[in-house]
Design a protein around this nucleic acid. Structure first.
Length: 305
DNA sequence: GGTCCGTCCTGTGGGC
DNA sequence: TGCCCACAGGACGGAC
């Protein structure tokens, strides 16, 4: 699954391979992947054709390409969901099994001429959205200097890779909520780009339990949590960045970081590594959470009363 | 208005 | 061996 660092790798790939080119053709292979384009797949294709791609921008796991050539300032928004990929390929390359959308790009020497959206589970998708001003003095997202953001992504908070994200901003956002800590950090309006895996890993690193109330959370706790998110995301971004293949605009979801270094997620019944380093014995427990699972150490992540 | 749950979707793996 | 079902996940709409 593409996590936030992988999505940033995709954005950088788009920046290198796609920005500055014109969309010369659009084929919607599976309309379900453009279902968020309310005017329908035919309008999606017609509107996008002959636009010029101005920049590749990201906020959280939302990616967008700024477009020139439309009546109103707009962007092509993409979300990879659970299984989405964006690949730059030669037209002669065989279609992938789960190819959903194909964009033909204006030719550039040494660069392939197709951008393909592939998605097995169809949790992701693409759509066009008008740009609106951001609500603060910062650029709309990573990869852009412009204070604009697609209307459809205007509610998405900044992520920890964004320089505008600070511990204090996270603290204020959490204190405005009246819910459990893990629920809050999975809320895209509090902080974006945190999925179930990163939530468990960051909570473990910060020695916080996901059932803690946001109403009583303290600044030092939030500072540790923010630092943990920055650390795990940054480390994964470094790992993803090194595996970038020149033909592909993305890596295939699975981060090398996660293959090696999970401390909580998926480790039910195994020793807590931090406790073990202190010579103590404690196991990682799994609890049902929102129809999924939460993993935490029974000793160093105390459940609230 | 804020919170929370069901739904979208498909491949995998366990149980029978 | 083959079938069936539970499960995993992010984000959104609707129920409460």
């Amino acid at each position: 699954m593409p996590e936030l660092p992988e999505v940033e790798v995709v954005r950088r790939g788009l920046d290198d391979w796609v920005v500055g080119r014109t969309v010369e053709s659009v084929q919607v292979v599976d309309p379900r992947s453009v279902r968020r384009h309310v005017e329908g797949p035919a309008d999606f294709a017609a509107s996008l054709t002959y636009t010029r791609i101005g920049a590749a921008v990201r906020r959280g796991k939302f990616l967008w390409l700024l477009l020139d050539g439309l009546p109103t300032p707009s962007a092509l928004v993409a979300h990879l969901g659970m299984s989405g990929q964006l690949l730059v390929e030669e037209p002669a390359a065989p279609d992938e099994k789960h190819l959903k959308v194909r964009l033909g790009l204006s030719p550039v020497a040494t660069k392939p001429n197709q951008l393909r959206f592939i998605d097995q589970r169809i949790f992701g998708g693409m759509f066009l959205s008008q740009l609106v001003p951001t609500d603060d003095q910062f650029p709309g997202g990573m990869g852009s200097e412009l204070p604009w953001v697609p209307q459809a992504a205007a509610h998405i908070a900044r992520d920890v890779l964004d320089p505008a994200s600070t511990p204090e901003a996270l603290y204020q956002a959490l204190r405005r909520k009246n819910t459990q800590l893990k629920r809050a950090i999975l809320d895209q309006q509090v902080i974006s780009g945190v999925g179930n895996i990163y939530a468990d890993e960051a909570l473990w690193a910060a020695k916080l339990h996901g059932l803690r109330s946001t109403a009583t959370i303290r600044r030092p706790d939030v500072a540790r949590l923010h630092a943990a998110l920055v650390e795990v995301m940054g480390r994964a971004l470094d790992a993803g960045g090194t595996s970038f293949d020149s033909l592909y605009v993305n890596v295939n979801g699975a981060s090398g970081y996660f293959d090696r270094s999970l401390n909580a997620y998926g480790r039910e019944g195994k020793d807590c590594r931090r406790c073990a380093e202190e010579g103590l014995v404690s196991v990682i427990r799994r609890d049902p959470f929102m129809g999924r699972s939460s993993y935490s150490c029974a000793r160093c992540q105390r459940k609230p009363r």
